[in-house]
Nucleic acid binder design. Structure first.
Lengths: 134, 134
DNA sequence: GTGGCTGCAAATCATTTGCATATAC
DNA sequence: GTATATGCAAATGATTTGCAGCCAC
């Protein structure tokens, strides 16, 4: 049984072909694809897969914390298979998203000004090294 | 001449009644309102003000750095008259946004992994102190 | 068998676009 | 007088909703 099936079983989710395919695609693809990107890539292999299935599964997988949703791109949600807390850099030119490892002791508090913190997203914007060089 | 007119002059923007009104409203209102909120509040006083004028002016004012756009709320953009870098807490229950003063030396770098950083947004999510108490 | 998954079409809703008129300077 | 602001109506586009049939277990 693949690691993806195990992940789904642990999360208590039924194993469907499409759901496994999405997890597999995300594991192989660290470019932080959007729902549309995932749909474009997968509906070629599984020509029966609809965009709705992609949306439904992304929602389910995020709820079960098997994927993380990144809202750094105002246009559309992007997804990441790395669910441990980390941060992101968004290139305003090429619109690529890079993972960022940021050390900050103050980010580990469970509360802040009395508010209970459940999650943190650090979003950096600018021009990425490739676009600067090009 | 009001501080708002001076801000606009310094930014090289023409002084229009509506634009001044938006700046004034934002200075008095630290609840991080959305375009819709601003429109609802102002189109009562200035019944000629259309939603388009609000959208146009918000865009202009953000470009001129007289306002800051906050994209912590996936549903819609929110705006802040404090333009110095700071961060935000979003309450998943009441959807209010709180300002957050976060000290983190690593946030001051101009580059990261070779990427040129132009701006940083730290978004915290959870349940605010009021909703926890209530 | 039953509950969750799939996928089609239609709806939603913040925001953008095009354009004609009005206003700032 | 010219450039910019205003505001109307229509378009955009990601995402959601409702619902019938299908598949996992």
């Amino acid at each position: 049984m693949s690691q993806f099936c195990e992940q789904l079983k642990t999360a208590g989710l039924p194993l469907t072909t499409h759901r496994i395919a999405i997890l597999e695609f995300m594991a192989d693809n660290h470019s932080h694809p959007s729902a549309e990107d995932i749909y474009s890539a997968l509906h070629q292999k599984f020509d029966s897969m609809s965009k709705m299935t992609v949306y439904n599964n992304l929602q389910t997988l995020v709820s079960s914390k098997l994927l993380q949703e990144i809202d750094i791109d105002k246009e559309k949600a992007r997804y990441d298979c790395i669910t441990a807390t980390h941060h992101h850099f968004y290139c305003n030119v090429c619109k690529k998203i890079y993972d960022v490892a940021l050390e900050c002791p103050n980010l580990n508090h469970e509360t802040m000004d009395g508010h209970a913190i459940e999650s943190v997203q650090g979003y950096f914007f600018g021009t990425c090294r490739e676009c600067r060089a090009g």
